[in-house]
Design a protein around this nucleic acid. Sequence first.
DNA 1: AACGTTGAAATAGTTC
DNA 2: GAACTATTTCAACGTT
Lengths: 90, 90, 90, 90
Amino acid sequence: MTNVNGLSAELLTSIIERVERLLEEKANLSEDIKLVFAEAKNQGFDVKTLKEIIKLRSKDASELEEQEYLLETYKRALGMTEANDEEGEI
Amino acid sequence: MTNVNGLSAELLTSIIERVERLLEEKANLSEDIKLVFAEAKNQGFDVKTLKEIIKLRSKDASELEEQEYLLETYKRALGMTEANDEEGEI
Amino acid sequence: MTNVNGLSAELLTSIIERVERLLEEKANLSEDIKLVFAEAKNQGFDVKTLKEIIKLRSKDASELEEQEYLLETYKRALGMTEANDEEGEI
Amino acid sequence: MTNVNGLSAELLTSIIERVERLLEEKANLSEDIKLVFAEAKNQGFDVKTLKEIIKLRSKDASELEEQEYLLETYKRALGMTEANDEEGEI
DNA sequence: AACGTTGAAATAGTTC
DNA sequence: GAACTATTTCAACGTT
């Protein structure tokens, strides 16, 4: 093994090249996505809105509900709700 | 074909799903990259430096020189370089 | 004026120092915020939830409504809604 | 004192508002910094380089040396340095 | 106290 | 070249 200042040059090279290859694949995919959007635009779709839909679909709805629940107590304390529940007050 | 406001719903669905699939592949690659870095870290490499190396390798020589030149100029103007030091070191 | 490679050294120094001063003030504020949260924690509050509330309050509710409206057509085309409006179909 | 689930609503409100005020001041400072850079750009400075300079100045000497040393070591191991070149150019 | 995880800030890239 | 979006980077937090 070739060592440079205690580093294995082969190992280092291997790591760098693996990452570079993965990055290249990522760049290719980004390119593919652009092509799909360009094609969609030609077919009359609004690209910005398409992107919004995709973002929307990626969110897990249940996750939002969970947050809602967690915040209830504090929201009530801050007067941010319409006081629509009456059984929880101390 | 099902039309909603003049758009083909099938076509729209197809576009959305193609993009979502590509995005998922991208996310997988990002994950792979993280794993490579994590493994590298375990082997004693400094991840930040690895990233810097990869960035350097992605730029061509002229870009690097231009940026280097500007940085040197600014440093000189600010007295941040050793060459500009007036206390007489060699 | 002292010029270094066509740059005014005084001007450059002034710019750098102004930014550095502003950055320092920002860091002080971050520190203050941390102190407030630490104090709140001592008084029995859950810091994570406090942060969530603050984030929530910073969002403009009307902005969300606007997005909703914009996405209606596409959501319908994708079958993402419960078809709760009947007058818009073609 | 108004208590909601054992928490003082007044205290909670006070905490939230203090943090929000500090965050607003931080946002103002960020805006100020942007203005300084915009002005600098108009005067012919390269903003990216200015930011790099500021970053360099914020680190102490030992940090810089450490990072520089690592970078050099990795470059050498990868054959990225001119000194390591074997094709014989001068 | 180092580690990974998370969330916010800055930077880079893209589009108009 | 200005605004918006996406990616990367950085800092804070809880965890082991």
